[in-house]
Design a protein around this nucleic acid. Structure first.
Lengths: 223, 223
DNA sequence: AATCAAATTATGATGCATCATATTTGCTGC
DNA sequence: GCAGCAAATATGATGCATCATAATTTGATT
């Protein structure tokens, strides 16, 4: 799943390391608070520090990693305030994606979405949280792709990069039914109803993300 | 004007060079098609190649620069397709900013906006295109700041980075009245009418940007 | 045993040497 | 005079040595 490949990806080592770290973030292998060390990573990956530094600097720039002090690179914690801002942005942007996708979707596109939802249902009954998270994400990005908005894809990818560690942390504490809210989206997509699709995605982000907000509020008031 | 400083900016040389190149892009000193060479820049700036490489890699990642072949780093040309996508995104995001700002604006905020608009009017009568562009940009970002949305600021900054060379190129061929559409925004802001502010900003982006679209379509059909 | 300071270590920043390869230049032979 | 190959050059990629400084450890003193 190479989201960034719309820009023709130069296969320099830095980009490879970047993809690696992105996947670690999105799949929750890097948890909030985890520290990264350039030399350590370079040794693990068998490269010099240069490509690792390139990758980490890229992630720091887009705030998927934070450099709290000049020597301390960590996966940042999400704050309630920041989450609410991201949520408002996602509703606008993923609303745009869903609206456009609904008016453009071909039968093959609908089938692809159905497939993702079906596999997500299987994952949920199997209690496979990791797979459920991955398929949830695939659903959201499939809408952007069907809409044919590669630039928006990049923006949303960077946003999801920041939510990755958070989502993983929340769902490991007891997942919730994020899949339910995808069915109304599918209904709107089948009817080619852009406005309804946008509303349904907004409801998914708001209601489906309620568990995340509660988790953040609990952590922030606890300290 | 350091837009990225919401993230506490590490004053490493790479970030300094990055800011420098950003300003060059935003103010049209780097035109579409211009080629950048790491060694050359490093020599001009009196640093080694490392910080320059850091900065350029960051800009390539966010597609403010493009690496067409592995040895060829250039300011990319905007396409009509891409511009239309960016425009749709801007209408959603800057609409969110204007809407939020209108409901939050204090008298001092309104005064700051008035000041920007007034100075922009002066620049327009003085035919000072560069200053007009700069103040236009300041107006848009002031809305985001008043709204208190630092994360959105970062997203929009990256988007504007891609439009910088284009806007400069268009307005050097004969500027247009981008200021007119700011007055309805101000009216909505004064009344605290979020919905009206969002609509007015949308109109600014659509109508005020018409010249840009025409320029792109002319260039693309000409080849 | 506690405290503070000096030494050590860890780690990102920076500069730079070298490599691989794409581009340009120029020479050779037809 | 031109085609084509070879040498030279240009340039980003990579690795690595060194630096500055923050964190940690150590040890001496009280």
């Amino acid at each position: 799943m190479h989201y960034q490949l719309d820009t023709l990806e130069h296969d320099n080592l830095g980009s490879t390391v970047y993809q690696l770290l992105c996947n670690d973030l999105l799949q929750g292998r890097l948890q909030p608070g985890a520290r990264l060390k350039i030399r350590e990573l370079a040794e693990q990956l068998g490269t010099s520090v240069t490509p690792v530094r390139d990758a980490i600097l890229r992630l720091v720039q887009e705030q998927a990693l934070a450099m709290q002090s000049p020597r301390d690179i960590r996966v940042p914690y999400m704050t309630v305030e920041r989450y609410l801002e991201i949520r408002a942005i996602r509703i606008r942007l993923e609303g745009l994606a869903a609206e456009t996708a609904a008016t453009k979707a071909q039968p093959a596109d609908i089938a692809r979405l159905e497939d993702i939802v079906a596999r997500n249902a299987v994952a949920m009954t199997a209690q496979d949280i990791a797979q459920g998270c991955a398929l949830n994400q695939q659903f959201h990005f499939a809408l952007v792709d069907i809409a044919g908005l590669p630039f928006l894809h990049g923006i949303l990818y960077r946003i999801w990069l920041q939510m990755g560690p958070l989502i993983a942390a929340v769902y490991q504490q007891g997942g919730s039914a994020m899949l339910d809210y995808h069915y109304p989206v599918m209904a709107a997509m089948r009817q080619g109803d852009g406005a309804a699709a946008a509303l349904a995605i907004g409801d998914d982000i708001l209601s489906g993300g309620q568990a995340i907000l509660l988790h953040l509020q609990a952590r922030q008031s606890a300290g």
